[in-house]
Design a binder for these strands. Structure first.
Lengths: 150, 150
DNA sequence: CACAATTCAGTTGTGCACAATATATTTGTC
DNA sequence: GACAAATATATTGTGCACAACTGAATTGTG
């Protein structure tokens, strides 16, 4: 690197390690999830819906995953086509679409139950380090939210 | 969340905070880079090429950024179309394509020089925390590399 | 030299992300 | 109760990511 612009070094910024690490983890998940017929974003949708227990709207899911309807709608349609969830308009407010996991969708849960452990073991971080990393990432997210008050 | 499958909690896994934080940071960069006519992956390509100083092959760039030719080729073509870099076959080995930043491409460097600082200030982490985060992410990447020896 | 194996970039196809926009529904306000 | 403003989702268009494949160029081996 030329000595000028040291702040433009790939490794001097947080963004690149973050971006590369995120893609590496997603890739690793994808390989395991493919065996269950799921992509990573589809898996995230199911995680959120499994957690909620009750039917959830597209907007609520988007708020949880920080994804907009332009991303979610096609993902949800593929999950519906695969029989993992049902989508129906909320009778009480026809603008909303309620997402409900089907029995087939609940079965996926057992199928992927051991995926996270499989990833964690290959990651080379202790439980304490993982917790520390989670904490730093959470604080970063909050910081980014706060500095753009919508 | 139902009490079974605690390991499937969205926040229990590292992947989701990592994924959400990475997208949040990329989004923030994109907003600033758009003013310079660059997308985030295009910016990463230029960062790597600026660092190298000498012409670089597509393969070398891919190794640095951890991206494959299927991703890079269209990005590089757009950078070429914008006049930021030149692509030519290596006369010594016609399989390779050499990437060279044009004068116009070098000018982009001044244009984006203050972008990283603008991001960092909004991130709410101290310099020490940022360094710690970088270190954890790097070790994670190494761990993931090691556990899949290609 | 012949030629199989390897390397390198490009192409194709699928699936996100996200901005901008469109459309339908609901909610205030008068 | 009309109707403007707000809300919720869907659609469109652009640009990645990445797996799988193609084809050209190079290298290793006999």
């Amino acid at each position: 690197m030329t000595t000028s612009f040291p702040q433009l070094g790939l490794d001097a910024q947080l963004c690149f390690p973050l971006y590369a690490a995120s893609r590496a983890v997603t890739r690793r998940y994808s390989a395991l999830l493919a065996q269950a017929g799921l992509t990573y974003p589809q898996y995230l949708c199911l995680l959120a819906l499994w957690e909620a227990d009750d039917p959830m709207t597209v907007g609520e899911l988007g708020a949880r995953l920080r994804l907009d309807s332009g991303t979610l709608t096609p993902v949800l349609k593929r999950l519906e086509a695969a029989g993992h969830l049902g989508r129906r308009r909320d009778p009480a407010d026809e603008r909303r679409v309620l997402l409900e996991v089907t029995p087939t969708g609940w079965e996926r849960r057992d199928r992927v139950a051991d995926v996270p452990l499989g990833i964690a073991s290959g990651m080379g971080l202790s439980e304490a380090e993982a917790a520390q990393l989670r904490s730093l990432l959470d604080r970063m997210l909050v910081g980014l939210d706060d500095s753009v008050p919508d």
